[in-house]
Design a binder for these strands. Structure first.
Length: 515
RNA sequence: CGGGGCGUGGCGCAGUCUGGUAGCGCAUCUGCUUUGGGAGCAGAGGGUCGCAGGUUCAAAUCCUGCCGCCCCGACCA
């Protein structure tokens, strides 16, 4: 069967991913190392992600603000674990002027900054500085802020959307009077992310707590949502951190209580990034390219007129325009349907396949017979093929317009259900010994990452060791290229023995390979 | 930063071992034909072969150095 992409998922998953990013017009690598240019189609997806998440952030009482890109170097050093966690991947601004020296444009030695500025890898420290000035009284709490921003982390190896040196995200930062309130906030956001991922991105996730060694630098507790990609690997898709009073103490974020005493705030931070788009690609993409959930598709219904340089072309076009206008007057997911007529002067068959690769949820093809017969012929991108052939259906125009909202909802649901079945069906719970775990995942050595067989995750009990015992566990897993993803939120009442030590288990965790 | 691979028209590649002055497919442009589906024929445009040195009558090809990209580690949203 001829597919719209030159590489299939089973050929080489990593290459397939790159092909989708390229052929779906999502993004490309930039001349700046490790960075990406997000193209209109990809950025359109990000804008829709922003819109629906921003609504949820505001609905839960948060306000947007904006802090600077630069952070004074000394700020980042305030919280010990935080420095250690980020120091190795920091972009640093040291000069403020260039000069031609020996025919080469370079930083002017006479223009050195007294204090270097770092480009934010995350904004806890500079926002904490503001918190310290803004918070005086218990009446100022809770302080619930969010910002949409870009951040920079100098990663060794980058992949478009999944890990780039610069990425776009939102970061929430809140301060609370008590630990209980801050923890409640942390979990509220985790639930917000889960609901958002599942209903808007149609990407099922497991929400849970990260083990100690996977925590955000400086956090007391880190939660994440983990999604399963089509190669069985986990993608950490959003995080929510309870920071305790670590940053409050480091930055003197204090308030006077009702009784006049001084107390440190409890802070939280949380974020999701453009990585979500990588998750959408690897969750829903197929061998014909991207399949976008309608809720985040910049164009939900694309109408391709079949033009043949004949007099009836004008009628076909007019029919298409009218159809687009009527569809745009309807709503889906609470907002107007995003429909367009693709009038680009290229062959209609090429247009079809371009939109297939981009993942437009519904592709409508209108020829003279449709226009004359007042009907609509369309394809669903989530069910593009029936065997070897492309599957299309026809409806009377009025019926199609009336059914459009439901059609988009059905596609959204079918993408979710397909991914949900994959997630639920690939978490093994019957592995109880480390030997069985090793046998299941196979040796890491001769395992080419890009082509390794689908494995999924394993759910096991453990005794939640700490310190050296935990390090030993991490090392054993690492030899199998495995990591502990999360301790899922839903835990049973009783536990089997620890898979690592045989000691009584205290918690169940998910183990798998990860991005 | 270690190990492997690769840089040749927009994209994908051959040519490199055995130096002789650049080729294929797709895409692009033009014309004709075709037209409910990723078309056919004919013609055209487009490359300082990653960069800098060196060897040579002659370098995409050999030598040295550098840069970049991809895959695998270390690091990570």
């Amino acid at each position: 069967m001829k597919t719209a992409l030159s590489v299939t998922r089973s050929d080489n998953f990593a290459e397939w991913y790159q092909a989708v990013v390229r052929d779906a017009d999502m993004a490309e690598t930039s001349p700046a190392r490790g960075c990406m240019v997000i193209k209109p189609w990809g950025y359109g997806v990000w804008e829709l992600i922003q819109q629906s998440l921003d609504q949820r952030i505001k609905a839960t009482g948060h306000e947007n603000c904006y802090f600077p890109l630069f952070i004074p170097l000394s700020f980042i050093a305030k919280e010990a674990e935080h420095v250690e966690g980020f120091a190795k991947e920091m972009a640093v601004v040291t000069h403020h002027r260039l000069k031609m020296i020996d025919g080469e444009l370079q930083p002017d030695p006479d223009a050195k900054l007294e204090e270097p500025l770092i480009v934010r890898p995350t904004s806890e420290t500079i926002i904490g500085d503001a918190f310290q000035r803004w918070i005086r009284s218990y009446r100022d709490l809770p302080l619930l802020l969010n910002q949409w921003a870009n951040v920079v982390r100098w990663e060794m190896r980058t992949r478009l959307f999944l890990r780039t040196a610069e990425f776009l995200w939102q970061e929430g930062h809140t301060a609370h009077a008590t630990e209980a309130e801050a923890r409640e906030e942390t979990l509220r956001i985790l639930e917000m992310y889960r609901e958002f991922a599942e209903t808007v991105l149609a990407m099922p996730v497991v929400a849970g707590e990260k083990p100690e060694h996977e925590r955000f630098p400086g956090a007391v507790t880190t939660y994440s949502i983990e999604a399963m990609m089509q190669d069985g690997k986990a993608l950490q898709s959003g995080t929510s951190h309870y920071l305790g009073d670590h940053f409050a103490k480091a930055q003197n974020i204090r308030f006077q209580t009702e009784t006049g005493d001084w107390a440190y705030c409890h802070t939280t931070s949380w974020g999701v990034s453009t990585r979500l788009i990588g998750g959408v690609i690897m969750t829903h993409g197929d061998d014909d390219g991207l399949r976008l959930p309608p809720a985040i598709a910049p164009r939900q219904i694309v109408i391709v007129p079949i033009l043949r340089d004949k007099p009836e072309d004008a009628e076909v076009l007019a029919y298409c325009q009218a159809l687009a206008a009527e569809l745009s007057a309807r709503t889906a997911f609470g907002v107007p349907i995003r429909a367009i007529v693709d009038k680009k002067p290229i062959r209609s068959a090429d247009k079809r396949w371009d939109w297939v690769r981009r993942g437009a949820p519904v592709i409508v093809e209108i020829g003279p017979r449709d226009a004359a017969g007042d009907q609509v012929t369309y394809m669903r991108r989530d069910a593009l093929r029936a065997g070897e052939k492309v599957a299309s259906a026809s409806l009377p125009r009025g019926a199609f317009i009336g059914a459009a909202e439901q059609l988009l909802a059905d596609i959204q649901a079918s993408l979710f259900n397909e991914a949900k079945a994959r997630l639920d069906g690939n978490i093994r719970t019957d592995i109880t010994t480390f030997e069985a775990l090793a046998a299941f995942f196979g040796p890491a050595a001769d395992d080419d990452d890009a082509t390794s067989a689908f494995k999924g995750w394993v759910r096991v009990a453990w005794a939640r060791p700490t310190g050296e015992a935990l390090e030993a566990v991490v090392a054993r897993l690492k030899s199998l290229k495995l990591t502990i993803r999360v301790a899922p939120a839903d835990q049973p009442d009783r536990f089997g023995p620890c898979i690592f030590s045989g000691a009584p288990g205290v918690e169940e965790i998910l183990i798998g390979r990860a991005y």
